[in-house]
């Protein structure tokens, strides 16, 4: 079955579920995706009226992690009396993971949320497609069979779907929102029970084979065009701090310039803060206006957390993440001297 037919089916089911949730007053608002006004984009949308349900779409350009709209932010999603709105949220696998992890971190209450689960088969790597098209204007992007079809004024080009999706999507094993007994109440639509998540992280082999200097050069080259607009941070469902470390100004904690050392410090410390928390949605890379792909950094962190703590974020709502727990007999190999 072609991608476009699968997407159409998913879209129909999603609209039906959303319509029912609104009709039956199980939710006050639906958060989903709408068609973008420029090719290679999509726009998040908040729907409260049933007549707007048909604005909901699903395709391989729905790159924003909608869980971002549920973390504590101002203005909050509340009714005039100040009560939390009940939210139905269109969830591909990584949105589901983000919701579960946010619940574990006690940032959201899944009782107020209905997860409209949909199976995602990958998000188009916008920057990679744009790079191939170069200085021509893309006017239309669609999926056909197993291809991404890109059209412009005088050209039409096809790209194999499997090759031109985000690197993280290529290795993704959680296509639909994970569910377990404790949160099954929240799930409508397609959610999957996940047991024994095996991952060989083979995609990292090439990077890991590099020497330290090569790795460092790679990171420097990767980040040098950063403008520090913080789109990566603002799109990240796990970046919900009231005041980010890099915004601390009484006193200033970190350099705020676009000198490479300051840029690197921001990105690497932000990555550290996402260890065992990143849900591999790739939104940070999708939104970067300069086309910086941060996926490799977060993927490497995911591997380290998996190896050391046998933990994958956002899979079950019971296990405490490694950065939230400790044991008295934890190894302390990072200590330089013992008493």
């Amino acid at each position: 079955m072609g991608i476009e037919i699968k997407n159409q089916e998913i879209e129909n089911q999603m609209r039906e579920l959303a319509r029912n949730l609104l009709n039956e007053k199980k939710v006050d608002v639906i958060i989903g995706y709408a068609k973008g006004t420029v090719p290679l984009s999509s726009a998040p949308i908040m729907i409260t009226n049933e007549e707007d349900i048909d604005k909901l779409i699903w395709n391989n350009l729905c790159y924003i992690n909608l869980a971002k709209y549920l973390v504590p932010r101002i203005p909050q999603l509340i009714d005039p009396e100040g009560n939390n709105l009940k939210v139905g949220i269109v969830s591909k696998g990584c949105v589901g993971r983000a919701l579960i992890h946010l619940a574990v971190e006690k940032q959201i209450n899944l009782d107020d949320i209905k997860i409209i689960g949909i199976p995602c088969n990958g998000i188009i790597n916008r920057k990679k497609v744009e790079k191939e098209i170069d200085e021509k204007e893309i006017l239309e992007v669609s999926a056909s069979g197993n291809d991404i079809v890109v059209k412009g004024k005088d050209f039409e080009q096809k790209f194999p779907f499997d090759e031109y999706i985000n690197e993280l999507c290529k290795v993704c094993k959680v296509k639909s929102p994970p569910t377990d007994a404790s949160i099954s109440e929240a799930c409508v639509g397609e959610c999957q029970e996940i047991s024994n998540l095996e991952d060989d992280f083979a995609d990292l082999a090439e990077f890991e084979a590099k020497s330290s200097k090569e790795k460092w050069d790679y990171i420097k080259d990767l980040l040098k065009t950063c403008t520090r607009c913080y789109a990566c941070r603002e799109a990240c469902p796990m970046c919900y701090c009231n005041l980010c470390f890099v915004d601390q100004n009484k006193p200033i904690w970190f350099g705020k310039t676009t000198e490479l050392s300051d840029i690197i410090v921001f990105h690497l410390i932000r990555a550290m803060h996402l260890a065992g928390r990143c849900v591999a949605c790739g939104a940070c890379s999708s939104v970067c206006p300069m086309g910086i792909d941060l996926n490799l950094i977060t993927r490497k962190l995911e591997k380290m957390v998996k190896e050391r703590f046998d933990f994958t974020s956002g899979i079950d709502s019971e296990t405490l993440p490694p950065m939230m727990s400790f044991n008295m007999d934890d190894e302390q190999e990072f200590m330089l001297e013992e008493d």
């Binding site: 726009a43 998040p44 949308i45 908040m46 971002k68 709209y69 403008t227 520090r228 607009c229 913080y230 789109a231 941070r233 603002e234 799109a235 200033i252 705020k256 310039t257 939104v287 206006p289």
Partner: peptide, 21 residues
Amino acid sequence: ICISCGTCSYLCPTCTCFDVI
């Protein structure tokens, strides 16, 4: 739906705001 990033203003040819440090 705005996520409060600086993309629109940093890439705007008329935005002039700056911070002094």
